[in-house]
Amino acid sequence: MHISTEAVQIGLDWDSRTGAVTVPIYQTATFRHPGLGQSTGYDYSRSGNPTRQALEEGIARLDGGARGFAYASGMAAITNLLMLFQRGDHLIVTEDLYGGTYRLFEQIFHQYGLEFTYVDTSSLDEVAAALKPNTKALFVESLTNPLLKVADIRALSNLCRERQLLCIVDNTFLTPYLLRPLDLGADITVYSASKYLAGHNDTIAGLVVAKDPQLAERIYFLQNSVGAVLGPQDSWLVIRGMKTLSVRMDRQQENAAALASWLEGHPTVAKVHYPGLAGHAGHDLLKGQARGFGAMIAFEVTDPALVETLLLKTRLISFAESLGGVETLITFPELQTHADIKAEIRARLGINNVLLRLSVGIEDVNDLIADLEQAFAQEEKGEA
């Protein structure tokens, strides 16, 4: 069955008693036992809730994994995964990753004795060179945030398998609709489900899928013990969003390709980072391992003064953090999403004072281009 059909079917057969087409919201903390030593399969919503379970089973099917897990946020999901490790363990990590993940690693888990080395995970050689005797895992973004570098998931998974490391892939930018890392050999996928999966900028959620049943049991123990689970209302919102994942992603990708081409030809745009462009370093690799290129664009303008103009003078495109919703958003990584990364590291990576990030929505692309065009024009007229 095609993944777009699988997504639409999530939760459809959950309530056979009433035949409800959408899974009910089981807004309950606890469940009544039918008898002494007996259970309906649900005891307490931290340990399991039917609405959350429908979501967890749905994302597991979409990703081709043994089991899925839903958390209160993407950061909660990653935090839970880090509890698989212990003091002295070393992880290799994508260097230009989301700033919130970097903050979690460096300001929280570093003090508990975990070690992190940040490398360009689009280079297999750099990953191999970073290996240590105490390396336990690779944490890689399938498309990096914000520079959109492409990781060779199959090659990295093979390297991890040879060294008996866990391969954890943050697949937020591509979703299982475009890329299924577990099919390429990864052990775990993680998502900020607030983004493309929920898709409407109206909920915060995180999802994890484990490929191996034994690993899934370890993750469930941590999920239940720590308790940073997703509530039933938000679980329902993510399910609702996932049902339209394919049609949204198709439209967003189409818009992104047109916008990237338009930006590439603009005289005040110095560089466009979008893997769908033939000149992008990861274009061929992503074309070979994914069904598409996603809908995120990063671009550099020629003058820092243009940054504020584009952030504040666009009328249709909103200046806001986050991404993946139906509305097009623009943000400034240096001061917004990646502010917690040290300035010298940002400068080395290219997260600079002229870099902007676009999350392309489902609006008519001609309206989006016109909005950017009028904002650029205001700077040219000195109206910024």
Rank of each mutant, 00 (worst) to 15 (best):
H2A: 08
I3R: 06
I3K: 04
Q9V: 06
I10D: 01
W14C: 03
V21R: 14
Y26C: 08
R32V: 14
Q38R: 15
T40R: 08
G41F: 06
P50K: 04
E57P: 01
Y71G: 05
T79D: 09
M83E: 15
L84V: 03
L84N: 02
L84T: 05
D89Q: 10
I92A: 01
T94L: 03
R103A: 13
L104S: 02
L104T: 06
I108H: 15
H110W: 10
Y112G: 10
G113S: 10
L124M: 08
A128C: 07
A130L: 09
L131M: 11
N134S: 11
N134W: 07
A137L: 01
L138R: 00
F139G: 06
T144P: 03
T144N: 03
P146H: 07
P146T: 04
A151H: 08
I153F: 03
L156V: 04
L156A: 09
T175L: 01
P176H: 10
R180F: 02
P181G: 00
A186V: 09
S192A: 09
L197F: 10
N201W: 13
T203M: 11
I204T: 14
G206Q: 14
G206W: 15
P213I: 11
L215W: 05
A216E: 00
Y220N: 15
Y220K: 15
F221T: 14
L230G: 02
S235F: 06
S235N: 05
W236F: 14
L237H: 03
G241P: 12
V247R: 10
R248S: 06
A258N: 01
L263C: 03
H266V: 00
P267R: 08
A281T: 12
K287M: 13
R291S: 09
A295G: 07
I297C: 01
E300F: 02
D303M: 03
V307R: 01
E308G: 15
T309F: 04
S318H: 12
S318G: 07
G325R: 02
L329C: 02
I330H: 00
T331N: 10
F332M: 03
P333G: 05
Q336C: 07
T337C: 11
A339H: 13
K342V: 09
E344L: 13
R348H: 12
L356K: 05
E363M: 12
D364K: 14
N366K: 15
D367Q: 15
D371A: 13
Q374G: 04
Q374C: 08
A375M: 02
E383C: 11
